[in-house]
Amino acid sequence: MYNILVCDDEKDIVSALKIYLSSGDYQVFEAYNGREALSVLAREDIHLVLLDIMMPGMDGIETLTRLRENSNVPVILLTAKSEDTDKVLGLDVGADDYITKPFNPVEVLARVKSQLRRYLQLGGGAVQPKQLRIGGVELDDAAKTVTVDGEAVNLTPKEYDILRLLMQHPGQVFSPKEIYRAVWDELPLNADNAIAVHIRHIREKIEIDPADPRYLVVVWGKGYKMMPQKGD
């Protein structure tokens, strides 16, 4: 039983989220502005916070800044702004993830689950020499297995090779040709399309929302990279 704080100025959204999260076996605390959220946090043992950005009075960003002064509880931002600058700002201030409104309930549950698992079960686990880890994605080169938030993922050998290459160099952009050369070990013959299809498949397996990836990011017109995550 984990405690989740939901903070949004729209009561209907809070209660909808409460219904969803309660069905997922979570204890939900409600708050309707930043001040309330901070007082709940001080009172209760909260394991995860869902925080709206656009709120009257103290907005989500300010609340998050205050919260981060004495807590490292995972925070998922709820935002109607889908602009990249807001996402970047939120992540910079200390958010662990974000969900854009109007959101899909399934996605909310998945992200909550992922963050909790990372925060409570995997945090601090020693990394084996042949293990690569970025956020919730773990690649064990000895066992040739990949897990996301502890759940095993089935990758084809080529997909596995591509993911390993990208995970060995977090943040580095690989062009399709470079990936082809490294994984297939031969000269690429118009392989742009083939690599892109593989990447798409990997994303569908490791990302919660493949259209809005958090790990395997497309750098359009250049290539692909694994985004380094907070706490790596």
């Binding site: 742009d192 798409r200 017109g221 250049k222």
Partner: peptide, 22 residues
């Protein structure tokens, strides 16, 4: 906000084609 950078149309088209292949 437009962040201009050198962009390879061949790569981008391949990436887009891959995304939509399925």
């Amino acid at each position: 906000a437009v962040n201009f950078a050198p962009t390879d149309l061949n790569v981008l088209l391949g990436q887009a084609a891959g995304e939509f292949a399925d």
